[in-house]
Structures are given as C-alpha cells and as structure tokens.
Simulated scan of single mutants.
Amino acid sequence: MTQRRELKRYAKQAMSGKYGTLILAFVVVQALALISSMLSSALFPGEETLDLVLGYAFTFILTLLINVISAGLNYMYLNIARGKAYSLNDLIYFYKHHPDRVIVATFFLAVINLLTMLPYTIYGNMNTPAEGASLETQITWMYTSIFLMLVGMIVYQILSIPLEMTYYILADKPELKGTDALKESIEMMQGNFGRYLMLKISFIPLMFLSVFTFYIALLWVLPYMIMTETMFYRDLTGELTAQKQEEERNAQEFVNPMFGGTFGENQQNQQQFWSVTGDSSVASDENKEVQNNAASENTQDSLYGSVENNRTTQDNPYDSSESKEVQDSLQSQTTPEEEEDNEPKPWDEYFNSLK
C-alpha cells in the first residue's frame, strides 16, 4: 500500500515535461462539455416542462458521447504513467475500440449524476424568482441553489468512488464488457474507499488557492489530481509496487555493482565474500608464522655454524691460508676488543707499597 505522498511524487515524475499535452487534452474535454451545455440551452430555451425534459435528454446523450473521450483521457494518463508513447489521439481510443463498452459504463455514472443533482435541478427551475422580486428573495434562492448543487456534487463523488477505476479497467482489458468493468471496479475498491476519499480531499486546498489565480491554476491542479488517481489504480493492481522494487534493485546494483542480483542475493554474496576473505587472511597469517619459524631456524643454524667454524679455527691455528682468511673475516664481524689502558691507577701505589 503506497502512501499519498508517494503517489503524488510518482505523479509529478510522470508529468514532468508533459504539462503542455496534459493541459491541452484537459481543455479539450472541458470545452466539449461546455459546448454541449450551451448547445442544449440554445436548442431548448423554453421554461416549459417539455422543453426542460427534451433539454435534459439531449444533454444526457451528449454526456454519454463526451465521456467516451473522457475515458480516452484516462487511457492517455495511463500510458504516460507507464512511460509508454502517448498523444492527443488517445482521446478517441475508445471510439476505435468498442465504444459501446464505455457508453454502458458511462450510462450508470450518468444516471447517478442525474439523481444526485435532481434536487438542484428541480429547485432551480421551479423556484426561479420572478421579475421584480425582492433582493432578499433572490439571495435566498441563490444560496439555496448553491447549497443543493454542492450537496449533489458531494453525494455524487461519494457514490461514484467505487466506480472510479472503470475506465482504467476497460483500457487494460479490451475484451471486458462495461458492466463487468463496473463490478471489477467495485471489488477493487473494497477496503480502499476511505484511502481514495482522503486522496481526493487532499487536493481541496490546491483548488481553494486557485481562486487567487482566477482559477488558472486549475489547469495544473486538475491534471495533477487525475495523474495521482492513475497512480492509485496502478497501486491497486500491484504495478506500482513492482516498479518500486525494480527501482530499489537498480539502486542497489548501482551503489554496489560487484554484487549483482536482488537484495537477498547481495547479502548472501557479501557473506560469502567476507567468509572467503576471512579464511584467506587466516591462511596468510598461518603462512607468515611458518615463514617466521623457518627464518628463525635458519638464523640459528647459521649462528651455530659460525660458532663451530670459530672453534675449528682456534683448534688448528696453523691451517692453510684460507682458514686464516676465514678467521680474519670472523674477527672483523665480532665486536672489537677494548684497548688496554696503560695509565697508572690509584690502587697501583698501594700494591707497590706492599711489595
């Protein structure tokens, strides 16, 4: 289980140098959503019940089609997170690969969104202040509409969390049906609901700070949030854990290249290395002792030999000239005798008086 801080760090690493494409793709999807809303209002401008129903039906259909492009956006983020090739053509990936799967999955998400925003929609259209209404009435209607809208958005986000991984699953499994992808997303999010909710809440401060930049910072914050959610999906599949282990193994090999392999293998190799070096050091110490003993024996033998030679030369003083030369060389190696001191000593007078 990867912590939020690490997920965001991996997201920043993946987005490095790719902000232009990510922002452009995000702007394209949001622009399509805005155009669909404006087109619906232009085609059905009336406030009658029929116009409202037809307008919402038209918007619902456009939402299904635009969400296919939104799924392609998630596909592009997944390619970037994995270090694969990517381009703006990824936005229409699902239009080329069984778009019906995405439309089926999007249908359930759109129904949830419609139901959660229904109170806001009904109140906003049925209780619109008439012309000439008091300022207090208009403020009350505005605050109530904003409150219902925020409540509907929060409820939708909470209810849709178990289904958030659907588009990623469809991208990884082209043969999977839309309903099966929804079920697999629910199973994948079991036990991870709170962790994913806290991940989304952690981006609220950045969204609040974007107010001071006239919401321009959202062009960076929202892609950053989507990339972090992509890393969350990779963490659920175990792909991010495998990537971290690979990075640790590469770092270990870089720091200690003489011990290749995994961390456990490195430890075994190090133990074998130090055991071998330890044995060799012991053997070298033993060899040194043997050499020292041999050297001491050789020196003793040489000393004994020199002493015996001295004795032989002393016993035979009239040997050949070679023995005399040997004797002279030995005498030169010995310490010179002290010279006789012929100076008179004080006690010599005492001995002379006794004589």
Rank of each mutant, 00 (worst) to 15 (best):
G178L: 11
G178Y: 12
T179R: 10
D180L: 12
D180K: 12
D180C: 05
A181P: 02
A181W: 02
A181V: 00
A181C: 01
L182W: 04
L182D: 02
L182Y: 04
K183W: 12
K183A: 10
K183R: 13
E184K: 12
E184I: 10
S185I: 08
S185H: 07
S185L: 08
S185V: 05
I186T: 09
I186P: 00
I186V: 15
I186S: 06
I186E: 01
E187S: 13
E187V: 11
E187T: 12
M188S: 10
M188K: 10
M188C: 06
M188P: 05
M188N: 08
M189R: 06
M189I: 09
Q190A: 14
Q190F: 14
Q190W: 15
G191A: 08
G191V: 11
G191Y: 08
G191W: 08
N192P: 03
N192I: 01
N192T: 07
N192W: 12
F193D: 01
F193K: 14
F193S: 03
F193P: 03
F193E: 07
F193Q: 05
F193A: 04
G194T: 15
G194N: 13
G194Q: 13
R195S: 12
R195H: 11
R195T: 14
R195Y: 11
Y196F: 14
Y196D: 01
Y196W: 05
Y196C: 10
L197I: 14
M198Y: 11
M198F: 15
M198E: 04
L199R: 00
L199Q: 03
L199Y: 00
L199H: 03
K200Q: 13
K200H: 08
K200F: 02
K200T: 07
I201L: 13
I201Y: 08
S202W: 01
S202A: 10
S202M: 03
S202I: 00
S202L: 03
S202K: 01
F203K: 04
F203Y: 13
F203C: 07
F203N: 04
F203S: 04
F203V: 03
I204T: 09
I204P: 03
I204E: 00
I204Y: 07
I204F: 11
P205L: 06
P205H: 04
L206T: 00
L206P: 00
L206W: 12
L206M: 12
M207P: 00
M207N: 06
M207R: 02
M207I: 07
M207G: 06
F208A: 11
F208D: 01
L209Y: 02
L209M: 08
L209F: 07
L209E: 00
L209Q: 00
L209T: 02
L209P: 01
S210T: 06
S210W: 07
S210Q: 07
S210P: 06
S210I: 03
S210D: 07
V211I: 11
V211T: 09
F212L: 10
F212V: 09
F212H: 04
T213M: 06
T213A: 05
T213D: 05
